[in-house]
Design a protein around this nucleic acid. Structure first.
Ligand SMILES: [Zn+2]
Ligand SMILES: [Zn+2]
Ligand SMILES: [Zn+2]
Ligand SMILES: [Zn+2]
Lengths: 155, 155
DNA sequence: AAACGAGACGTTATAACATAACAAGTGTGC
DNA sequence: GCACACTTGTTATGTTATAACGTCTCGTTT
């Protein structure tokens, strides 16, 4: 089955809870309060958050944080597969299925800025074939599609 | 046939000349001296250049340029399909085949930093299918693979 | 010719994104 | 205790990108 579609309504409270539980399973005690809070901030938001957006939210909660605090937490989450960086937006989203996530691809609505995560073809596609032909060894692939979601198109 | 492989040796003087000629055919008088020069700077370099790299080179040639000069030229080139932005690197490469270029994908060597342009599957792949299923209309897709090229791997 | 508008470019200033470097606190194992 | 790994706090700075406004040129309109 596919990941929850952020363009669609779903039981997001449960979705968020599950993602946090998976995060704790993956990281155990390494999911410190700051990291956990940052992950939850990403889960709360269906749009990608920039590091400074995260920082502002932390500060709004009374945490006297400086930029490295946000970047470190985000870097940790990305390194552990709990969040993804969206290059196009210089921003981050939570991964909703960290246990099954491999070779993600993203659909970014230019109107509402929401980001949907989907799975990419990975080792089978034309790109992998081309790379092999060139002797290029792919380690990681960024796939980010821009466009307009169904909700925004109809309105 | 595929585009010239920057990981491979080729007659780059000719390659560059052809690309410039195609650029002039596409833009006519709109390819002003600055834009032409920036395009040529990108063609000269097999690695992606950041806007400030371009800027430095312009300044080294005696041109008293400020950042917007570089960004404007690069934006123009990208808008006209003569160059591509590599999101992962916040940098730009010239397109070697602007007339035939559609849905490009990139292979980025993390060791030598060279970037090869290839063609992506476009409307047929799993991504397009997923998007259609969600009612998402894709307008543009960024595909950037990181890895290691054959030259760098063997050495 | 004078007025106008579009497009390119010059210039200043500032916004937005990201990291280097070092200090200090915590816990674990020796 | 002490070394070590890891996390966090904090200051400062580096890097990437754009807003805003002025000027110049050229071709079109009046
Ligand atoms: Zn994911
Ligand atoms: Zn939308
Ligand atoms: Zn191209
Ligand atoms: Zn290489």
């Amino acid at each position: 089955m596919s990941s929850p579609d952020p363009f669609d309504r779903h039981d997001h409270a449960a979705c968020r809870k599950r993602a946090l539980a998976q995060a704790e399973a993956i990281c155990a005690e390494r999911l410190t309060p700051i990291r956990r809070r940052v992950l939850d901030l990403l889960l709360e938001s269906h749009v990608a958050l920039g590091a400074y957006d995260v920082l502002q939210r932390l500060q709004a909660e009374g945490h006297r944080a400086q930029p490295p605090v946000a970047y470190r937490a985000l870097d940790f989450l990305v390194a552990n597969g709990l969040a993804h960086r969206i290059e196009r937006l210089n921003a981050f989203v939570a991964c909703h299925r960290p246990e099954k996530c491999e070779a993600p691809a993203f659909l970014i609505c230019r109107e509402c800025n929401r980001v949907a995560e989907t799975a990419s073809a990975s080792r089978r596609g034309a790109l992998a074939r081309d790379a092999r032909a060139l002797g290029f060894e792919i380690e990681q692939t960024v796939i980010e599609a821009q466009g307009i979601c169904s909700g925004c198109r109809t309105s």
